[in-house]
Write a protein that binds this DNA or RNA. Structure first.
Lengths: 138, 138
DNA sequence: ATAGCTGCAAATGCTTTGCAAGGCC
DNA sequence: GGCCTTGCAAAGCATTTGCAGCTAT
């Protein structure tokens, strides 16, 4: 759409998250949120940046992913103890995890319903309900 | 019950899993499976062993946890990217994760039902369905 | 000007591995 | 005896941190 102002969307995201629109954050925002939902690891995003000529250190990638998560722009998904995955789709939904390829795929939020959701133990409240369906190729 | 043959149960578990009943494995089996369901990290189990006068190296703890998981005696639960948790309850069930205390609690298997379970994508099959309800103290 | 960011390299923390010594069958 | 296990220490990885230099406002 706005090919002439390619960073305006990213700019707005950062501003409303109260994060300074630095060169790195603008570029990463663009990589993350332009074009469909993504599930990236820090390493993924770093490579993506390098390939696209964006100079960012891995440390900044980690910082940025966590800042974005804290700001509600990203959501961290726990599926492996090896790496952290960050999901650009923050709407409530669940995941398929393709074990062979170590790849995450969204399941639309309304495609799963949980019956008999147990109530949280005394003194606690539910922060999130995460469903992961692990898949193996046949 | 069988106070006079305290290791017979552990012995049988190991034999049927085709694992040599070494001193370490017998002791760890006893620690893990005597008395209720447990959710342990490698470090937890190691401390538990040390406290109980069982001499085992951390490396052996890791090896053992993975061997037991491969043998179907344990199940690994993914909740944090920081540590791996192993669950002695291998029956189908789900979990509460108390974030403040970093503690896992079982939700009985029949206490949650999932409606509209999506079918696995072409060429894959469902290996497991894991529900984690994250809790925060109020 | 200055508070906030970034990059690098070093440090951390969990987990794995290599290999010699020891234990089960 | 032979093969599986163990233990230790070193290595491996993903992630975090400290700090000097840079940048947005």
């Amino acid at each position: 759409m706005s090919e002439n102002r390619p960073f305006s969307k990213s700019l707005n995201m950062l501003r409303s998250a109260n994060l300074r629109p630095t060169r790195q954050r603008l570029a990463l925002t663009k990589l993350l949120f332009d074009g469909g939902d993504r599930h990236v690891t820090a390493e993924d995003l770093h490579e993506d940046a390098v390939v696209n000529g964006v100079r960012v250190s891995l440390a900044t990638i980690y910082n940025t992913l966590h800042q974005f998560t804290a700001a509600g722009l990203l959501r961290e998904v726990m599926v492996t103890s090896e790496k952290s995955y960050f999901d650009t789709n923050i709407a409530p939904h669940h995941h398929f995890f393709i074990e062979d390829a170590q790849r995450l795929v969204d399941i639309p939020g309304d495609q799963i319903a949980i019956a008999n959701l147990p109530k949280a133990p005394e003194g606690t409240e539910i922060r999130s309900v995460d469903v992961v369906i692990r898949l193996a190729s046949t």
